[in-house]
Amino acid sequence: MLTLSTAFDSGAIEVIDLSDHANIRLNLRADNASAFKQWFHFRLAGTAFRECVVHIENAGQSAYPGGWDGYSARASYDGVEWFCVPTEYENGVLTIRHQPQRDVIYYAYFEPYSWERHLQMLGHAQYSPDCVVRELGQTVDGRPLDMLRIGTPETGKRKVWIIARQHPGETMAEWCAEGVIGSLLDPQHAVGRALLNKAVFYVVPNMNPDGAVRGNLRTNAAGTNLNRAWQTPSMETSPEVFLVRQAMEETGVDAFFDMHGDESIPHNFVAGCDDNPSFSEHQRELEEAFKRLWVAVSPDFQTEYGYGPSQFGPETLTLATNWVGDRFGCLAFTLEMPFKDTANHPEPDVGWNGERSLQLGASMLTALNGVIDRLR
């Protein structure tokens, strides 16, 4: 008998018909308080050695239907090792064709990053004498919003802020943040050691705990898109942004990185704050220098493909990168990673995944080390 479950961390899908393993009919489920939908994560049981054909019938009504072209769903037997499975998109329907080799299998939009792993990472990090975990406050659902302070605050040190996963379905963002955290806390990592001599890092690896656990694509439990709330956050609808902004005002910001995933563009790229009216020549020079350095140290980063000018129009200063760049006059970037595989360096068996995101985060520190003395 074929069964389906989403009753676990980040589980999300709606069942239409499970009567035939060769014609499993599903729908994407919208965020709990918003119409955004694209994330899915579900468990099938009773599948062993039979080809399963899964039709997600409302994929054409998703938040980013252009993201399905060239996309491959991810699958796992144990929730640890994830791999790509044959996926096609036609006439608004996303179809996954796969013959599982075990009786139970998980399918997901992208490799998940669980709340349990998040809590374990925080616990492990605070063993380091260089790290303090601070609870900034609580989310709409009452979960802790945690920040890691890595490094010892001293006069003259730069303040580097890194946030990830404002959009909870963009799980590659927290994988990337883990790569940064792990490198900074590794006593054998030369770049990490050098940076902590000159800077203090403030890292919020999951800006949207409620949305992450609920299986939302883009919003928190109140239905707020956090990356459009930076001008006027509130404790009622966007406490995550309100609390992080408050902490930034306490520390100051000399560099800022906001980690995300992009549904359509099969590349890793950054978007700066050059659309800001206040954008300065110093910020421009820092942006260009940082990008040159990152291209030099990581083949997975590139600058040819990305967002065009004025991508966000009147919403510009509601975005984290633009608001921070304007408020603090600092180097500020949004990092975008793909849900698809990278076109320049594809790995078809696994696609762009958690491990590659983690390594990209680690490589970012080498580029940052090259500009750290020029931040102010």
Rank of each mutant, 00 (worst) to 15 (best):
L360N: 04
V204I: 15
A63D: 11
F242G: 01
N369Y: 15
V180K: 05
S19G: 12
T224G: 01
V203L: 15
E14L: 08
N322R: 08
A296R: 06
V80D: 08
E236S: 03
P239C: 01
Y64Q: 14
S357Y: 01
M207P: 01
V244C: 04
L136H: 02
E88C: 03
H260Q: 13
Q188L: 08
T232H: 08
A247S: 11
V270E: 08
V133N: 10
D141W: 00
K291Q: 10
L145E: 01
A164L: 15
I162E: 00
A320D: 14
G142W: 12
Y77T: 07
G313K: 11
D275M: 11
N227P: 11
C52K: 00
W230H: 07
A212G: 07
N27T: 10
G223K: 05
L185R: 01
E263C: 12
G252D: 14
S363L: 13
C273P: 06
E135D: 15
A296C: 01
L26H: 08
F40K: 02
P266G: 10
A177K: 04
A22Q: 12
S357W: 04
V295E: 14
E250Y: 05
I265Q: 15
H189F: 06
E178M: 07
R228E: 06
D141R: 10
Q61H: 03
G215C: 04
R327M: 03
Q61R: 03
G11N: 03
S264P: 00
Y106I: 10
E111V: 06
W161G: 08
Q38F: 07
D262V: 10
S76D: 05
P277N: 09
V270I: 08
D31C: 02
S298N: 10
N206M: 14
S278R: 14
V85K: 11
E135T: 14
T152G: 11
D341P: 03
Q126G: 03
V213M: 09
G192H: 07
W230E: 01
A199R: 09
N225E: 12
G182T: 10
I56H: 01
S128K: 03
W323K: 13
F36C: 00
V241L: 08
A48G: 07
E250V: 13
N322A: 12
Q138A: 03
L293R: 14
N216H: 00
D9T: 11
M235N: 04
F269H: 14
F279M: 04
E174D: 13
Q126I: 07
G329T: 05
R50S: 05
R158L: 12
L122S: 06
D20G: 03
A22P: 02
N58I: 00
N225Q: 09
P144V: 11
Q302A: 15
L122C: 15
G223N: 05
W352I: 15
L184T: 12
A45V: 11
G252A: 02
A247N: 13
V213I: 15
L217P: 00
A7L: 07
P233M: 06
F8A: 10
C131P: 03
F269A: 15
G142V: 14
E240H: 00
Q166L: 02
M121K: 10
T3V: 11
G79V: 09
P277C: 05
R376A: 09
F42P: 09
D254F: 05
N206W: 00
T251I: 15
